[in-house]
């Protein structure tokens, strides 16, 4: 089974709705250890992405993801704009010309996106950033795929690992981003970027769960 271009668009739209619903929550998480704008900024970016959906009609998956990336870069601001923008730009490069994705294509896209975030943000595992949610998700996706599981089951495993990674940021002391200025005081709070990262992969798992295995 595969993820078609319209499934990718449905995922992006579903994520935009999740962000809109959780705008206040993301902003609250960011107020605790950052500067209180993550929900507002992500919502501004993904509402702009939603407005671009009509342009996606004649595009392949790579082009759709690249348009999402460029839109985020020019509308989100903060660190999230370049980081999420780079994620989608790189994922778009990895899926250039494709009209549907196999499980292995999705692994390649997620790998490229996560590599892009690490390259741009220079964060490592344990720095209390979105990388702490995304790397375990990528790892779980690969393991599930190599054990022979299908796409929906692998996406579910990936989203579950992402959630564990997100929850594991709570006790960490931030070493990157604005939360790092708090030192020890950043411990005890869930990282807002890891939270919105989990929402992204959770939205993929849910949005694509109906696809036949």
């Amino acid at each position: 089974m595969t993820v078609r271009r319209d499934d990718v668009i449905a995922w992006i739209q579903a994520y935009a709705d999740v962000i809109a619903e959780n705008k206040a929550r993301l902003t609250q998480l960011d107020s605790d250890i950052g500067d209180g704008d993550h929900g507002t900024n992500m919502d501004r970016g993904f509402q702009a992405v939603k407005a671009k959906v009509p342009e996606f009609a004649d595009k392949d998956i790579g082009a759709v993801l690249k348009t999402v990336g460029m839109t985020l870069v020019s509308t989100v601001g903060g660190a999230s704009g370049p980081l999420y923008g780079t994620f989608f730009l790189q994922a778009g490069s990895a899926t250039a010309g494709k009209m549907e994705l196999s499980l292995n294509d999705w692994i390649a896209a997620l790998q490229a996106g996560v590599d892009g975030i690490i390259m741009r943000g220079k964060a490592n595992l344990g720095d209390k950033t979105m990388v702490d949610a995304l790397l375990p998700a990528l790892q779980a996706l690969k393991e599930s795929a190599s054990s022979g599981a299908g796409l929906p089951a692998s996406l579910k495993a990936s989203a579950a690992a992402c959630e564990q990674g997100m929850l594991a940021t709570v006790p960490l002391v931030a070493r990157k981003g604005r939360a790092s200025y708090l030192g020890e005081r950043s411990a005890g709070h869930q990282d807002p970027g890891a939270t919105s990262s989990h929402m992204l992969l959770q939205a993929a798992a849910e949005s694509w769960s109906m696809l036949a295995d």
Binding site: D35, G36, D37, N41, R44, V73, S74, T75
Partner: peptide, 11 residues
């Protein structure tokens, strides 16, 4: 100028 307390964008 970016949004309040938010970096402006590359464009």
């Amino acid at each position: 100028p970016g949004a309040v307390f938010t970096s402006p964008t590359p464009d």
